[in-house]
Design a protein around this nucleic acid. Structure first.
Lengths: 135, 135
DNA sequence: GGTTGACCCTGTAGGGACTACAGGGTCCAG
DNA sequence: CTGGACCCTGTAGTCCCTACAGGGTCAACC
């Protein structure tokens, strides 16, 4: 379906923000389809590959594991009544993102308070260390 | 300085919320000092070890790498003019936490919108996939 | 007092998600 | 026609655990 490759792996890497080695790793792991090859064996990619790769990167940034991304991509590839399933996967992930958000906010407050208390002077005990060592 | 050990590694694990294997790993990595040993070779820990371990766990939860935690602990161990340095390490970490927070909030919005748009019907294209595949 | 069964020990291997070589081939600009 | 940037495969390393395997120890129960 990918008509004729447009760019090499290095260019795709630049376009997608995913490292060359990581792209090859994703191919090994079945997240990216084996691309067309030039006469000399170079991987040749088209715009579909860029979209897919960006999707993978974004999903990773959203905290999906590679396995979850794989499932999401499988759903997208099937393209039939898959929306409900994708929604399920995504809703679960949304719950986890919200949990992470809450954790991070709590951490931010704690660290911010600790850094503020630690005025930079040469106090006998560092409040930052104290703050984190507390039960 | 640790007078006489109070508890075994399993109890310490329960008290600190850090797994037994992980405690031993931290010892190998130099984050926890080699504890006293019972006659039969069991690791015996005191309250200081619990505090230190809780500190490590908290710092990890705050997103510090083991290496950063090691540096923080070194500073705490030295106990002389270390406050400023600890503050530097922590401030850097705070910046990264805030970056992560911003990212997560963006992700939460995107995913939330995508899940909402993806009404569960059998649409020709799944908006969730579309949302993340966009440039 | 003998035997479970839960705990502890060391050491090594596995996992997830990359990341970095090593040892080679290709392509193109000067 | 040569230098340097790119590409290939395959393997090994990183980080931070986590899970064995193969054994010793300890407390309790019968």
């Amino acid at each position: 379906m990918r008509p004729v490759g447009h760019c090499t792996i290095g260019v795709l890497s630049g376009l997608s923000g995913v490292g060359v080695e990581t792209i090859r790793y994703y191919e090994r792991e079945g997240l990216m389809p084996p691309p067309a090859r030039s006469a000399s064996g170079y991987r040749m990619y088209g715009p579909d590959d860029r979209s897919r790769l960006v999707f993978v990167r974004r999903a990773r940034e959203l905290g999906f594991t590679l396995d979850q991304v794989r499932r999401l991509l499988d759903l997208a590839d099937e393209r039939a009544g898959s929306c409900q399933q994708a929604q399920g996967v995504a809703a679960a992930q949304l719950r986890e993102i919200r949990r992470k958000l809450a954790d991070l906010r709590r951490m931010e407050r704690a660290l911010n308070g600790a850094v503020a208390a630690c005025s930079g002077g040469t106090m006998p005990r560092c409040p930052l260390i104290e703050a984190l060592a507390a039960a």
